[in-house]
Design a protein around this nucleic acid. Structure first.
Lengths: 189, 189
DNA sequence: AACAATACGGAGGCAGTCTCCGCTTTGTCA
DNA sequence: TGACAAAGCGGAGACTGCCTCCGTATTGTT
């Protein structure tokens, strides 16, 4: 849930609209992917397009807000895994969770990849904790000698993203994703 | 180059327009990616939108036609590599060439992935020789004991596509692509 | 030369994005 | 509590891209 903690709090009606928009967007993205019509989301939320675009000047911002729950869950997992005493298993579990996160909405990998090429994208910022955790877990796995020393954590993040992309394009099952991910990442050892 | 060999030959003006459209499209895709405006391509080719859509009812068809040259080159490479006596090296070279083909135009991996979910897509059909060759080279590499027995050639094709996608999203250099591809595919051995 | 088949092209309907600005709601201060 | 300024609303509409329909033009054949 969460966001909308601002320096100056929103007016009551504005906060109500904000929350409603995020809620509707979350459903719409889940059902029809992140490319679904924003005017339509505004309409379903019972607000005008102008209101939606004032709160979320870019689609990315709305996606990031809608992703709140999934990000919270990953945050918790991150805390658990960075404290784990089996760095190899922790990294594996993390990569799978990451891939599943990227499959939350259809076309999300594309949006995120694009966000990485945009300064100050809210979606990019929302990925910050994820890339940070990836870097930490990669470092720990290296220390433990579980993976090669020349593995770059950014490459690995990109690789996981790309596997999520592929499995989404193929409409793979969870098992399909896992198989693909195993194939793609088995080379790090 | 290319195509337009029909059961009933096109009328002279139609053939002229067809060729011109493909030529212009090829440039436009190269400059602005496969998502560029089709009306704009029609305009630059000096024809009306109706003419473009008659020749190419779907964007996929136009993409496939514009890809003609690159496909011809891969065809030649396929002949060479399937006759090679070093199956491991042949597979590596093929995967790199494949990845580079998928990077011909921005967003091509996405279009191709979508084409794979569409019956009778011209773009999908244009990939047929590529997936076939991949299957052959994978089989030969297995016989030679160069790669694991449980590697599925379709998974491998998807993996190469996804690496092409990622390196395109990151605007990677050729060297970047090669590094990423090596990381992703080193697990097949 | 004339005619039928083939092909052209652009006007226009539709959908989605995004903005502008006159109007409404809210919160605050007396 | 009333009144005012600040904050926020929303929908009309400009713009872009997709794609079709059908009256008109071109081609090739007899």
């Amino acid at each position: 849930m969460g966001a909308a903690v601002a320096s100056r709090p929103l007016r009551a009606d504005a906060q109500r609209n904000y929350d409603r928009i995020v809620e509707v967007a979350s459903d719409a993205f889940a059902e029809r992917g992140v490319l679904t019509s924003l005017d339509d989301i505004a309409c379903r939320a019972g607000v005008g397009p102008g209101t939606l675009y004032r709160h979320f000047p870019t689609r990315d911002g709305l996606i990031a807000a809608a992703l709140g729950d999934s990000l919270d869950r990953l945050e918790a997992l991150s805390t658990k895994l960075t404290a784990s005493d089996d760095p190899a298993a922790a990294l594996d579990e993390w990569m799978l969770a990451l891939a599943n996160h990227l499959r939350t909405y259809d076309n999300l990998p594309e949006s995120i990849a694009q966000a990485f090429r945009t300064d100050d994208s809210p979606l990019r910022n929302s990925c910050r904790p994820l890339t940070d955790t990836t870097a930490v877990l990669v470092a720990r796995a290296k220390e433990a000698g579980a993976i090669r020393d020349d593995v770059d954590s950014r490459d690995l993040f990109a690789l996981v993203s790309s596997v999520a992309w592929a499995s989404q394009r193929r409409r793979d099952s969870d098992a399909g994703l896992e198989r693909m991910l195993a194939l793609a990442t088995s080379g790090i050892h």
